[in-house]
Structure formats: C-alpha cells, structure tokens
C-alpha cells in the first residue's frame, strides 16, 4: 500500500473539514437569525468531528495524535484549500462558500465510499449521510435568496464571483495525485471537479444568479502544497491559543 499517497489524501480532507468547521463556529452567537446561528454551529460540530475521525485514522497510520496534528502545526503545514480559510465576511459570502464547498465535499465522500482503503470507505459511507443535511441546507438558502430581492441576488452574485476562483482551488491536484488514483484510494480531483461543476450548474440554473463561463475563471491554487492566504495563520493562532498554553494538559 502506498502509505505516503494515502496520508497525503487524508491530510487534505481532514484539514479542509477542520478549517471550515472552525470558520463555521465563528457564526455561533452572530448568525443573522437564530436558526442560522444553530445551523452553522451544528455544521461546525459535524465538520470538526469528521476531521477528528480522519486525524485518528492518520494516527493509526503512524502520524501524531489528533490534537497535536490539529493544534501544533503552522499554516505552511496545512493542506486545506484556500477557500475554507477565507474570513466569513458577511452572511452572503459564508452561504456561497458553504454551497460551493459542501457540494464538492459530499461528492468527494460519495467517491471515497468506494475507496480501496477500507477504513476510509467505511467512514465515508457514514459521513456522506450526515452531509446530506449540509447540502440540503445550502441548496435551500441559495434557491431562496437567489430568487428573492434585488439586494439578496446582488449580494450573492458578488460573493459568487469572489468565491469561484478559490472554489476551483478545491480541485488542485495533489503532488501524489497519480499514486492516489492508481492505488484506488480516490477517483481523483479531475473526476470530482466534473461532477461538482454539473451540480453547481444545475442548482444555480434554478436561481437568478449568473455562473460565469468556467474557462474565464482563474483557479487560486497553492493550498494543497501549504501556500496560504494571510488569513490562515491568525485562525490557527486563535484556534490553538488555549491548547498551546500547555500541550501536555489532560482535558
């Protein structure tokens, strides 16, 4: 088994979940309405919990403890895509990111349910059932606000235009992409991107939002090889502030 390729795959998935989970949790207490406050907080709990399960899997493959991996690395050691680390902005941006990312995520876990690495396939079968609530939530609100008022449509359109280059960065191929595909761990980013595009097109066609021609969007890459925006390190500093006071403390 090509363990290096497997770990590479697991790290980027877990890092995406952890960082977006943390961003979602920043809505706790600040949601535009109570229901959305609870929704983003619940999705945060799901995503952080899912990242923990994948870090545990990495731990069984010889990597460090989940807490150490989550709290003791610096930004350049994280392999999340840049989309998930961007600040929440206003609700319209968080919602657009939630839709673009979670559509990719549920599709990714659909593929992973057939992974040749059985523990990952088992976990993916479980996670994809949970993610249904996330994508249904995103789709409901995008359809609602994407057909509502001039302001809601205008705001979502602005955020969509801003998020799309980063969203294409989700599919930045891993340095070990060929090994990952050849080992049957995952179908690969290209296949995932194709399905994601179809789903995004279909949902947006039910709104008054315009999807620019894919060819005109320049993907923002780098996240998968540890290159990040200036927003990731402050997020990590805040997330790990308490843990780093005493990394050996028993919680």
């Amino acid at each position: 088994m090509n363990e290096l390729a497997l770990k590479e795959l697991l790290y980027k998935i877990a890092d995406d979940q952890l960082i977006l989970g943390h961003r979602n949790s920043e809505w706790t207490g600040f949601g535009p309405l109570l229901e959305e406050d609870i929704a983003f907080s619940s999705m945060a709990q799901d995503k952080v919990g899912q990242s923990y399960a994948i870090y545990q899997m990495l731990n069984q493959l010889g990597e460090q403890e989940p807490d150490t991996v989550a709290f003791m690395r610096n930004a350049n050691q994280f392999h999340n895509c840049q989309l998930v680390e961007l600040p929440n902005g206003e609700y319209d941006f968080s919602l657009i990111r939630h839709f673009l990312y979670d559509t990719a995520e549920i599709t990714r876990f659909d593929f992973l349910a057939n992974s040749s690495y059985e523990p990952l396939a088992q976990l993916a079968r479980k996670i994809k059932g949970e993610l249904k609530y996330h994508t249904l939530h995103a789709n409901t609100w995008i359809k609602k606000l994407g057909n509502a008022t001039e302001e809601s449509i205008g705001r979502l359109q602005g955020s969509l235009n801003k998020a799309l280059p980063y969203a294409l960065g989700i599919f930045e191929p891993s340095p070990l992409e060929q090994e990952i595909i050849a080992s049957g761990f995952f179908a690969g980013e290209e296949v995932l991107k194709k399905q994601w595009m179809e789903k995004v097109e279909l949902l947006l066609s039910q709104t008054q939002l315009n999807l620019p021609d894919w060819k005109t969007i320049q993907p923002v890459l780098g996240g998968r090889v540890g290159q990040h925006t200036e927003h990731l390190q402050p997020l990590l500093d805040e997330m790990s502030e308490v843990f780093r006071i005493d990394p050996s403390a028993e919680w």
């Binding site: 229901e35 609870i38 929704a39 907080s41 619940s42 709990q45 799901d46 949970e130 609530y133 939530h137």
Partner: peptide
C-alpha cells in the same frame, strides 16, 4: 419544521 439543525447533532426543531 423550524430548523433541520437542533440542540444536538441528532435532533431537529
């Protein structure tokens, strides 16, 4: 239905 997300991960409101 008030919210598909509730006070714990496994409950809706």
């Amino acid at each position: 239905l008030k919210n598909p997300f509730g006070p714990t991960l496994c409950r809706s409101i």
